[in-house]
Amino acid sequence: MATEVLAPLPGKIIRINIEPNATVVEDLEIMVIEAMKMETPIYAPCDGVIEKMLKKEGDEVEEDDLLALIG
């Protein structure tokens, strides 16, 4: 069962630090969302492999949008 990474706040993805299929450990910064002119890092919720990256840099996201799947 893959773990979903959801957007914790609305904003714009300004940086993605990892590729699909990359191995991540919990609390690794996987991307950065900019909201209210402030950069907010998004951390991996668990250890695993990025199965799917659903957004790309420059995308606007709403709260709770699915960002990535970690398996």
């Binding site: 914790p8 706040l9 609305p10 609390d27 909201a35 209210m36 402030m38 907010t40 890092p41 951390y43 919720p45 709260e63």
Partner: peptide, 20 residues
């Protein structure tokens, strides 16, 4: 002020997103 709240919050728990 909202940004400051968010920053102070993340100092205690970096996955706590208080901004909005």
């Amino acid at each position: 002020a909202a940004r400051v709240v968010h920053k102070v919050g993340t100092e205690a728990d970096k996955k706590n997103y208080l901004l909005m």
